[in-house]
């Protein structure tokens, strides 16, 4: 069909335009010039050296990693339990309850952020990393619930019934049947909840204070003052993390596909 070919051509161009900005940032980050301009006339790692050599950026990176790690742990555990409850449990007004759990994705982050900030100031929680992670968990947990709900829905309830009828107790069914079967999805949700926190700006902006500035917050501050070229390297680093997460996710999925086919 000719029309199909034309649409596919247009879509190809649009798709290229969608990745282009990201590719440009990555290329720019390797610029050897004193000021960033595209295309760079020479190649160097100077901006990366600046990024990793600067105490401020380094501590922001460290803060981001700790917070994202804690968020990942909190939201994966709570999200898994919640998803299991949604798929297998009897919950009053289930759909409405689900819509409530997903609400943090919908409510503008700015509202969540300032409300949290408003409550955190008197409690002295601003700048506390674990608290930022708890705040991030609120927006990361719906993602975990969505991923794991669809994975759990793919697990035939008769498998659990079969295990029960064969004499296994609930905990054994969970450990020996449910957990191994949703392990890939569990890893996906761990990866994506990590990423959600690692990339999150608005909540961190209000809760981080001076002590716990995360990478996105530092980029934000820098973009609002004067744009330092180091940001290209920091951005490329964040893109790199995203690529890693997506690759890890794809690897997990491939592994599973191969295992179930064999």
């Amino acid at each position: 069909m000719r029309a199909d070919t034309i649409v596919k051509g247009i879509a190809g161009v649009l798709c290229a335009a969608l990745v282009a900005p990201i590719v440009i940032v990555v290329i720019l980050s390797f610029s050897g010039d004193r000021f960033l301009s595209f295309p760079p006339s020479s190649v160097s790692l100077q901006w990366y050296a600046k990024f990793f050599g600067d105490d401020g950026w380094r501590s922001a990176l460290f803060a981001s990693l700790t917070i994202a790690g804690a968020t990942c742990a909190i939201s994966t555990v709570l999200g898994f339990l919640g998803a299991y409850a949604f798929v297998r449990g009897r919950i009053p007004a289930k759909q409405l309850m689900l819509s409530f759990v997903l609400l943090p994705l919908i409510v503008p982050h700015i509202i969540t952020a300032i409300a949290l900030y408003f409550a955190s100031v008197p409690l002295g929680l601003v700048g506390v990393r674990l608290w930022i992670a708890v705040g991030h968990s609120v927006v990361a947990v719906p993602i975990v619930v969505l991923i794991l709900m669809s994975a759990l829905q793919g697990v035939d309830i008769n498998l659990e019934r079969a295990a029960l009828s064969l004499g296994a107790d609930r905990l054994t069914v969970f450990r020996r049947i449910v957990l191994p079967l949703v392990l890939p999805a569990l890893m996906s949700s761990a990866l994506f909840s990590f990423l959600a926190s690692f990339d999150e700006l608005v909540i961190a902006l209000f809760l981080s204070g001076v002590a716990s500035e995360t990478l996105p917050v530092r980029i934000w501050n820098s973009l609002r003052m004067e744009v330092e070229p180091t940001i290209a390297a920091v951005s490329a680093f964040l893109i790199g993390i995203t690529v890693l997460v997506l690759l890890a996710d794809a690897a997990v999925k491939r592994l599973v596909a191969r295992r179930s086919a064999g």
Partner: peptide, 18 residues
Amino acid sequence: AQHRNLGVVFQNYALFPH
């Protein structure tokens, strides 16, 4: 169910795929 000690064969077999 786990204490009833009954064998159950399910319609779609419910074999543990892993």
